[in-house]
């Protein structure tokens, strides 16, 4: 399964005056939703008896992601390392991940989270599937494998759709796929004894265009709620409620 090393969204500090974001003191971990994905992958691997490989792509700072996925049940983990400060977008990420998956060899199923908790772009799984030439099943909340057939239940708003496809395949899962147990300290500290590998992205033999981002972030600003500080002080309770209803209607809330 593929995971992403991110800054915890709840630790981001937004300067209300400039709306600039300070992530300097934010705790880093694998994306919150990835934890559910890792557990789903662990369950599937347990059923089919396969090896569970954790895979991440990012700068050198992402290495601790390996330990976390190993603690959560992966048998081994690989970090495809981008040069420090390299620009990365969905295009580059998908090429790096797909190339490394190809190098692993006998892979039957790739699990990604529907969206990472920082960008929530919903693109990594479909892009990787496209590059591998494998079927892609998105928005999955239930998952099972029988022989070489994947069974999945997709959530589409208020509708559940059940699909099947032949493996190998790429599946993107939603957090409802199942809970993510907290790893115990024994698993956590034992993770260092499991095999892990760092592969420089330059060693994957990718063409230059694969490592050239197609999108550029030109601005990143925090969202700051602006209070209107309207006080309804005049009149009795009935009149105040009426004034409130009227004000909400004017704002388009009602």
């Amino acid at each position: 399964m593929c995971v992403k090393w991110v800054a915890s969204a709840s630790d981001l500090l937004v300067d209300p005056a400039t709306r600039t974001i300070d992530a300097g003191r934010a705790h880093r971990a694998i994306s919150e939703y990835d934890r559910n994905t890792v557990e789903a992958a662990r369950v599937v691997a347990g059923h089919v008896g396969g090896d569970l490989v954790g895979l991440t792509f990012g700068g050198p700072e992402a290495t601790p992601a390996l330990k976390e996925v190993l603690a959560r049940g992966a048998d081994r983990a690989i970090h495809v390392v981008a040069p420090q400060g390299a620009r990365i977008d969905g295009h580059v990420t998908a090429h790096a991940l797909a190339a490394q998956i190809g190098r692993i060899g006998d892979v039957g199923l790739v699990l990604c989270t529907e969206g990472a908790s920082d960008t929530y772009a919903h693109e990594t799984g479909p892009r990787v599937g496209e590059l591998l030439g494998w079927p892609v099943v998105t928005n999955v909340r239930e998952l099972g494998v029988e022989g070489t057939t994947l069974h999945a239940v997709r959530v589409l708003g208020d509708v559940l759709e059940t699909v099947e496809c032949e493996l190998p395949a790429v599946v993107t899962v939603v957090p409802e796929i199942g809970p993510a147990p907290i790893p115990g300290l024994k698993a956590l500290l034992g993770a260092g004894r499991k095999p892990s590998e760092q592969v420089p992205v330059g060693d994957l033999g990718l063409p230059d265009h694969a490592l050239m981002p197609r999108t550029t972030v030109t601005s990143l600003l925090g969202f700051v709620a602006q209070r209107k500080r309207i006080r309804i002080a005049d009149g009795d309770a009935r009149e105040k409620v009426a004034a409130l209803m009227s004000g909400l209607a004017q704002e388009g809330v009602l």
Binding site: H27, E68, G184, L189, G192
Partner: peptide, 18 residues
């Protein structure tokens, strides 16, 4: 250290969720 950071991650999750 890296190990202690990892331990903290687990403890924080335990504290936050349970």
């Amino acid at each position: 250290t890296e190990d202690r950071e990892a331990v903290l991650t687990t403890v924080r999750e335990f504290v936050r969720t349970e």
